[in-house]
Nucleic acid binder design. Sequence first.
RNA 1: GUGGGUGUAGCUCAGCCGGUUAGAGCGCCAGACUGUGGAUCUGGAUGUCGAGGGUUCGAAUCCCUCCACUCACCCCA
Length: 428
Amino acid sequence: MSPAYRAVKGTRDLLPPESEKYAAVESIARQVFGGYGYGEIRTPILESTELFSRSVGETTDIVHKEMYTFLDRKGRSLTLRPENTAGVVRAALERGIDRMPRPLRLWYAGEQFRYERPQKGRYREFRQIGAEMIGVPGSASDAEVLVMLFDFLQRLGFIDLSVTLNCVPGGAGREAFADALRSHVRPRARRLGEDDRRRVEENPLRLFDSKDPETKAVLEGAPTTVEFLDPEAASHYAEVKEFLRESGIPFTESPALVRGLDYYTVTVFEVVSKSLGAQNAILGGGRYDNLFADLGGPPLPAVGFAIGEDRLVEVLPGDPREPRELWYVLPGSPEDFPYAMAVARALRSGHAGAVVETDLSGRGFAKGFTRASAILAGDADYPFRVSEVRVVSVGSQERAEQTVKIKTLSARREEAVPLAALTRRSRT
RNA sequence: GUGGGUGUAGCUCAGCCGGUUAGAGCGCCAGACUGUGGAUCUGGAUGUCGAGGGUUCGAAUCCCUCCACUCACCCCA
């Protein structure tokens, strides 16, 4: 109950069957994203601290108070990555993106770290699955990214999710918008709570995230981000919406959607789920046309998203694991173990993709069948989703005859099969 | 960083106005059934009652401190 060592706060162990669901989600991401020409990128978990303060934004909470930062033995400041886009951009620059084919399409899946108080759907170590399309300025790239995202969510069984969309001005327009927002709010600042009053000066865009009804009332009639887009960005944003309508991607616009990372320009979007409690965003993304230049590279346009894998798995409408057939090799007694293992190896070579598990508990036939039946019925702790169980009985009699008895549990039918036939796919 | 809730068996929890050897369900193991099924019945194992201190003849129960987990705020995936 109180072990000597426990997982560090905000981190957790993923065991079967949970871990198998994560693997299945990642495998579906690989299939869907790969189908759009995205290859996987794996970047280091550790980066120099400055990469994040430059990209994510000096004033954001992530950089301000949520990073796992430490000095290494040579006194360099390193940080456990709080998000993955900065690392992808850094890698692209470092590996000479100007000599790579464009657009460069990359996806990733991996652990991220933020030092926050854990709560439902929020952990200090969490996983994100994301994708970045680099090098295409046009609205078609925003649209393709969103269409791909939707394909992915549909493959996972989500049917009525809707994307929330907005635009954020980059560069000078962003400052102009912040000023206009301050001017609107300041006369009414008395009505705001302490936190929100502080935000007016420090980071007024954050006011839109406030859950305080008073704050929401104050924001009625406030200036909107669209008004501060330059003409080019405005038509880009209009084109994205047109693309989405033509692709049949359901979306709603919300002027209150302002993403927390500083590097977004023009398009921003997110998807929320009702069943997640307070931490309800399952993914977010947008266009970041200035980030490459901000990090000292050429001015490359890019667009991407990040999905909170832990939150995604939590609200999955179905089971992402492919159902598998289980061949349950059941020895009558420990004397049959060597023969049972030979049988199991033969089965594995003849039935790729199936689970071939040998019961080494020595519990005997009656108990073994009970266990096999429980797995077929959906034993909650079994790692895999099982579509059918075939109990392969191997006792002294079978050993002597060099045969096995195969019983298909759902059909309650059993037949004797010679050992030599197991390496070939047998009929069901 | 701030506030609330909860810590008792592998899991879910009861017991908490102090009173003998600390309980239930589920799960696990064994038997009924020495070679064939999710059932049933019988039996069994498993606990530093989160930790430390205090009050008391006596503490899972009352008090204090600490720790952990959890939900919410802040913020985000």
